[in-house]
Design a binder for these strands. Structure first.
Lengths: 154, 154
DNA sequence: TGAGATTCCATTGACGCCCATGTTTTCCCA
DNA sequence: TGGGAAAACATGGGCGTCAATGGAATCTCA
């Protein structure tokens, strides 16, 4: 399954096009249709992104493991599907981010693609910087607890 | 699984390329894609290094669907994924260390690859020397405790 | 017939691949 | 056991390819 790693800052041109980083495209190369799925983050001024398979999985887990999910979780899944956009990239690997999505993340000139493992996010570079700084502080504060939860490499 | 042992100091050429020590490459020979994963250490002016399997495991261990809605819990994972780089080595076994990563470890001319068991680190040789010295002092100070925790040889 | 969207083409710069060289280690055989 | 051949590894540089980006041309729908 797709793995999104690293951070890439790409330019948004006058027409609103952005290149999806080549490694991200490669990670999704086996998917149909060719493209990405985006929806506004519920917790931050950012865009959540993933492959089609992630939505597939979300749909499956909602129905199959119904009991495991709280009603709130189910509501969130509904929100995700309704606010998602499937974006196909053009022959050069660029997508057009919808107006409302851009506005939600305050993106104008540049877009930072941030790998998060099975998913990724798209940020306005400056906003990402301050957000990362806070996350780093929190992580260092919680370091003892978090360290315990880091998967052991076998 | 991969095991990284010993220390190797290699040159960083004008293009920013460094040879990954042959024993380290051999330890990762069964992985796909062929290369290493690096990210800045959170506690030292050094680079953390590992194989792809480390990230795979990190991604798998966190149930993807839940992470989107619990910001505090996956701070560390997010930091790792976003600041990591997958570096494939060329036919000669060299990788290009990204600018930001080099800066974090103050590496310019030489890079010291330090085996740490399941992972490894990359240091600026002088910084490694002083760091090792301090580690030695601490270890001697804590010697009684450490001795007690050393597994018994049967 | 315009405005927006999609496809196509051109440019530039970075990165990956290839070949060459020097040095060290290993191996083989006299 | 010593010397020479061969392999493995680290290193340097040239060059082709591809990704990111900008803009023009074509298309489509109101």
């Amino acid at each position: 399954m797709a793995l999104f790693v690293s951070t890439f800052v790409n330019k948004v041109d006058r027409k609103g096009r952005v290149s999806v980083p080549a490694p991200f495209r490669a990670a999704l190369s086996n998917q149909m249709p060719q493209g990405i799925v985006v929806f506004p983050s519920f917790t931050a001024a950012a865009i959540e992104g993933c492959g089609n398979d992630f939505l597939e999985q979300l749909a499956t887990s909602t129905t199959a493991a119904f009991d495991l999910f709280s009603p709130e979780q189910d509501d969130l899944n509904t929100l995700i599907f309704s606010s998602s956009h499937q974006l196909a990239w053009d022959p050069e690997g660029r997508v057009m981010l919808p107006e409302e999505i851009l506005a939600h993340a305050n993106i104008t000139e540049q877009a930072a693609f941030v790998g998060k493992g099975r998913t990724f996010q798209i940020w306005e570079p400056q906003a990402l910087k301050s957000h990362t700084e806070e996350a780093r502080k929190r992580a260092l504060q919680n370091r003892p607890q978090i360290a315990l939860r880091t998967p052991e490499v076998k």
